[in-house]
Amino acid sequence: MLFKLTASTGQPLYVQLLQQIRHATECGILKHGDQLPGIRTLAEELIVSPNTVAKAYSELEHEGLLDLRHGSGAFINLNRRARLFTDQVERARRRASELVEQLREDGLRDDEIRRIFEAELLCPGKVVSRR
């Protein structure tokens, strides 16, 4: 699969990587039992520090989404909990799209909505934007 890591988005690269893998499992790009490239191969492919890949993999393993088998690679493991999580994400996406629609009706432009979301994620609850 293809990953897209951006150097300056306020998120560590390993977080971006693990989110993209998680996202891929949620929308079905990666299925149970699929194999991911080894740490070294993926690091060379993405040209990022091997630690970035290692950290992402180990967090995903911790979450139970990935099985790291020494010597044979990394395998996607969609157990029941993970599948429940997939449903949860689907619900969240619906809610988010409703909220965005509502904000648009309130007269906010898309870039303003994006900024509010980003600011909220970077610094939860602290940001006010007044005109």
């Binding site: 150097a7 300056s8 988005t9 306020g10 998120q11 900024r115 980003e118 600011a119 970077l122 610094c123 940001v127 006010v128 934007s129 007044r130 005109r131």
Partner: peptide, 11 residues
């Protein structure tokens, strides 16, 4: 402050 904008910062 009349406007506050928080953003990530590049290296």
């Amino acid at each position: 402050a009349s406007e506050i904008e928080v953003g990530p910062i590049s290296l």
